[in-house]
Design a protein around this nucleic acid. Structure first.
Lengths: 258, 258
DNA sequence: TTAATAGTGTCTCTGAGACACTATCGT
DNA sequence: ACGATAGTGTCTCAGAGACACTATTAA
């Protein structure tokens, strides 16, 4: 095709190009506030941040040193930003096969003092037990989990305050408007366990009232009862177990029903 | 702050960087299939594409010449991809102050034969009458509107088939799950006009049946009746006019009602 | 028996969905 | 009067929401 001829003429250096292309990841997990026998859990939604070292791997002073930041890094030319996020998540925390989703692009001029650097923001959902071997790496002196309620009080690097704020908004919405809540739950769960996950992001009475929610879970089209299977991990009385099933969810605002 | 010291040490050329950063825009409009007096409209959702010239502005053979493509262009270092999309939309079609939204990043290696080029995809909603002065520009020999139903049959440049497919999916969803339908409608509209817009993307019976929809529109929390105001543009019998109001829309899947 | 969580009985109210019917106007 | 769109009357059925009540178990 004649593209070949055109390509020979094309000059890649004609336009000024970005100085960097990165991926950042907001890693969310849910931790129990308290956990007792025969009691439904009380949970808190956490986000994982790293503390930027004072010096880089070659011993020179680091940018935004000492501040808290989202894990992430530069995208390689042979991968997409999404693949890069996946790779970095694996390298930083050792976790793989978890829910990862792109949610925004941050490219405001001046957002990074090093130059014209574009960041793709992702969020990841990691069940607590998979996050056990988290560790500091090259340019981080610490890795820590913060409650989404007070993470914005921290000194944050670059424009990460904005990205984190957006990430929290996005996961709140995703938890309520999609079935991602299942990523925080075991395969089989009780109504009160699902409820506890949702209560980390809402206080809505339809979800907060036990009896209302116990009834509602049976009518939800994307959740099924596991016939006859019960557990006593949340109460002395054996409790029915449920699981998520794959159904298409349609929430047109012109329908009241789904 | 010590960032200054760190910046002096920082070498922007350390990482390989993208060869280009672009914005593409899927411009949607709705055209009447037929329009008669005293009849509700029958509409069709259209997308605007440009035909790439055989040669560029300097007379050299063009990349992907002769194929249809989304309008767009390179992002300047002093603007965001969103601002760039806005600027290009103004330059290409002369329209401003219209609904514009980012919906995706396309950065698969090899998507553009010229090199490592990242594209931000946006969609825009332009009422038909504002699109009157559309015109071909530098590197386009034609500007045309295609029905979303058969646009994918065309020879499309780069990975624009994928982007367009996603854009159509997104606008379908946005029309049904948000109030953007108002961008296609006059300030004051009848139930059958709103219905006609929605019918370009769905056949759902709750929307398609006149009597059902005439009733439903009164119960929608984001639409209000304009007391006593009527029109005869869609029927001989004067028809009630409605308008959109700003209310927060919440569609948690754990509520059946909104 | 008590305390705690799980789950049901029942009532009221709203709205969905279907179908037939009425209303309003230009021609 | 006719034809077309707009809009209502009425019925049935499902489910939301509230509240009180019952069920099950460990300790």
């Amino acid at each position: 095709m004649s593209n070949e001829h055109a390509l020979q003429q094309y000059d890649v250096t004609k336009y000024r190009t970005p100085d960097g292309y990165t991926s950042d990841i907001a890693v969310f997990t849910i931790l129990p506030v308290k956990s007792e026998e025969f009691r439904p859990p009380v949970l808190d939604l956490k986000i994982m941040l790293i503390k930027r070292s004072m010096t880089d791997s070659e011993g020179r002073p680091n940018i935004e040193a000492g501040k808290w930041a989202l894990p992430g890094g530069f995208v390689a030319p042979n991968e997409t930003a999404f693949q890069s996020a996946k790779r970095e998540l694996r390298e930083e925390t050792g976790v793989d096969h978890i829910h990862l989703e792109h949610f925004g692009v941050y490219d405001t001029p001046g957002r990074d003092p090093r130059g014209w650097i574009i960041s793709n923001a992702h969020f990841a959902i990691v069940p607590e037990h998979k996050l056990s071997d988290r560790r500091a790496s090259d340019d981080a002196t610490a890795v820590e989990l913060f409650s989404v309620h007070d993470v914005l009080q921290l000194p944050l690097a670059f424009d990460h305050a904005e990205i984190i704020q957006d990430a929290v908004k996005v996961i709140r919405q995703k938890l309520l408007e999609t079935t991602v809540a299942k990523e925080f739950l075991p395969e089989e769960f009780t109504y009160s366990e699902l409820q506890a996950v949702l209560l980390t992001v809402t206080n809505d009475s339809a979800i907060a009232l036990e009896s209302a929610f116990a009834r509602k879970i049976k009518t939800l089209p994307f959740i099924e009862e596991i016939a006859g299977k019960k557990t006593t991990r949340t109460s002395k009385r054996p409790t029915q177990l449920y699981r998520f099933i794959d159904v298409e969810i349609n929430h047109s605002i012109y329908h009241t029903k789904m």
